[in-house]
């Protein structure tokens, strides 16, 4: 599997990253090298092996569905690049009918 500049653009779209032409080529080369390298995994037969998602084979603990955290809404909003009336402000998403 060879990744080219086009493929980098496609993956970039999924990851919300954009690259200029020169970067596309560099990342394509990097990713191809990485994928060639990890190819050695295929030298090992893993048929029937249960994938290991958690380093310790334990179940996820559950807690009571109770409020434990204080309200820090104002502190959180202070960190926002732009906030107004208790809301996060982002560029307009839905366009006006007239425009």
């Amino acid at each position: 599997m060879q990744i080219d500049a086009n493929e980098i653009q496609k993956i970039g779209k999924l990851a919300k990253l954009s690259f200029d032409k020169k970067e596309q080529e560099k990342y394509a080369e990097n990713l191809n090298k990485i994928l060639d390298f990890v190819e050695q995994m295929n030298q090992y037969d893993t048929t029937g092996i249960t994938p290991m998602a958690h380093p310790l084979d334990i179940a996820q603990p559950m807690r009571k569905d109770a409020v434990t955290e204080p309200d820090v809404r104002e502190d959180m909003l202070k960190l926002a690049p732009e906030a107004n009336a208790g809301l996060y402000v982002v560029p307009q998403v839905i366009e006006d009918k007239e425009s």
Partner: peptide, 25 residues
């Protein structure tokens, strides 16, 4: 980029699942 590719449709089993199996080994 590497992670997004490995998790993207069509490549998940070949990369991510395989890696998790190797992890078990």
């Amino acid at each position: 980029m590497t992670g997004t590719y490995a998790l993207s449709a069509g490549y998940y089993d070949a990369y991510y699942l395989k890696a998790q199996q190797i992890r078990k080994l």
